[in-house]
Design a protein around this nucleic acid. Sequence first.
DNA 1: GCCTTTTATGAGATTGAGTCTCAAAATCAA
DNA 2: TTGATTTTGAGACTCAATCTCATAAAAGGC
Lengths: 143, 143
Amino acid sequence: MKSYEKVFVDFLKRNNLKLTHPRSIILQAVFRNHDHFDIETLYDQIRVEHKNVSRATIYRTIPLLVEAGLIKNPLRQESKDRYEYIYGHRDHLHLVCSKCSKIIEAGSKQIEKLLAEIAQKHDFRIEEYNLVVSGICKKCLNK
Amino acid sequence: MKSYEKVFVDFLKRNNLKLTHPRSIILQAVFRNHDHFDIETLYDQIRVEHKNVSRATIYRTIPLLVEAGLIKNPLRQESKDRYEYIYGHRDHLHLVCSKCSKIIEAGSKQIEKLLAEIAQKHDFRIEEYNLVVSGICKKCLNK
DNA sequence: GCCTTTTATGAGATTGAGTCTCAAAATCAA
DNA sequence: TTGATTTTGAGACTCAATCTCATAAAAGGC
Ligand SMILES: [Zn+2]
Ligand SMILES: [Zn+2]
Ligand SMILES: [Zn+2]
Ligand SMILES: [Zn+2]
């Protein structure tokens, strides 16, 4: 048994969930992708060999793999776009509360400086960066 | 005329676009939002006084305001979720080249440390952060 | 094996933010 | 005022993601 399989099996056991056939197929398919993948692509890959695994089961299994610490979505966004005006408004970064959706604004100068250093190290010219920090705000922590 | 109006009018002129009634109404509504707003909320706000401004026009005007440098969407990343496996992989940043799509992976330790400091300052518990840096890679710069 | 209870599944319907279509309306320069 | 051109409103459409529910698979006791 590969070690990532063990991680998943242990996670399932801890949560009283079953290692079913579809879950096993999905796990293998995920670990064949050594790149970033979207779920539609994963669905197509799985379907080549396993015509009976449904889209719903894939969508249900992905969060389990995330929770198990096996995969993550490094580009995760919010489900809808939110805007703010920037004219006459200092640049800042956003701490988004995943419980109440509140946004805390914080200075971004240090981050920008650090990113500039990192970019220089890789001879990369930054055009823009998107940073979303999600977590729990003070108020929600105290509930 | 407020200065943000001037910015928008100049932008429209430069691009041979017209300052129409709906565009003007939308601009005012946007600048009444001193918070982050989503378009559905903006639509409802506008609808209170202007029942005839359509959702489509709002969706069409927002990118103009972005292009004019008046607003931005600081949280937008990609239109669909993408994943990568993290098990046995050190955490890293993504420098994505907008010319050739190459992804340069860089260490994220310093960024994490800095974010932790910022979060602590705001009594915020970080669950995850997502950072995507886009720009031009070394190779493409030399072309 | 068998029965029972619980959990998971597949297929397809539904959601909802965002986009597109197109006939009608508004704009503006001549 | 005219007429070419741009913009608009209404609603149809898209598509990733979620939900529903009847059926199927799993696990434990026997
Ligand atoms: Zn909160
Ligand atoms: Zn902000
Ligand atoms: Zn990566
Ligand atoms: Zn490049």
